[in-house]
Nucleic acid binder design. Structure first.
Length: 152
DNA sequence: GCCAACGTTGGC
DNA sequence: GCCAACGTTGGC
């Protein structure tokens, strides 16, 4: 089983929204590197839910990959901000997954705490200029994040 | 295929 | 709101 981190702006979609909805299609990712990670996900993988562009940013919970290799429907929808005219139904370029709510942490693990506990080598999130919205987390690092969460 | 211009992300 | 970092676009 693999671990991942999914970024979302809470104003757009928050861990509370996921908790309410139970599951969501992780649509709208329009970056090839992030898409490649989405395509590498397997059913049962766990993903940390990260709130970005908020004060403070940080990991707010956990979700699980329920379904993989779904062609992102928003790429075909001219009304969608994620519409991609270069994509077609028979040859989609954007793929995603469905995730389900697992847990909302009682206390956020802030970016500041993550910076204090991990190196940029360990956590892609911490690398200078990083803008990836989907990234892998090494299992040892994931275990330490979970331990951090449990310790408070 | 280069690269300048532009747009976006996201922490601060 | 600023701006560094990075991805994408499009002219040549």
């Amino acid at each position: 089983m693999n671990y991942w981190l999914l970024k979302s702006e809470p104003d757009v979609f928050s861990i509370d929204d996921l908790k309410k909805q139970k599951t969501t299609l992780w649509d709208g990712v329009r970056n090839y590197q992030a898409r490649n990670f989405l395509m590498a996900m397997q059913v049962g993988d766990l993903a940390f839910f990260y709130h970005s562009s908020t004060e403070p940013p940080g990991i707010v919970g956990l979700c699980r990959v329920l379904e993989t290799h779904i062609a992102d429907p928003s790429q075909f929808d001219p009304q969608s901000p994620y519409f991609d005219p270069k994509s077609s139904e028979d040859k989609p370029r954007w793929w995603t997954v469905r995730v389900g709510f697992v847990e909302k942490y009682k206390q956020m693990i802030t970016l500041e705490v993550l910076r204090a506990k991990f190196s940029p080598d360990e956590l892609v999130l911490l690398r200078r200029g990083n803008r990836l919205s989907v990234m892998p987390i090494a299992s040892g690092v994931a275990d330490r994040i979970i331990a951090l969460k449990a310790s408070r």
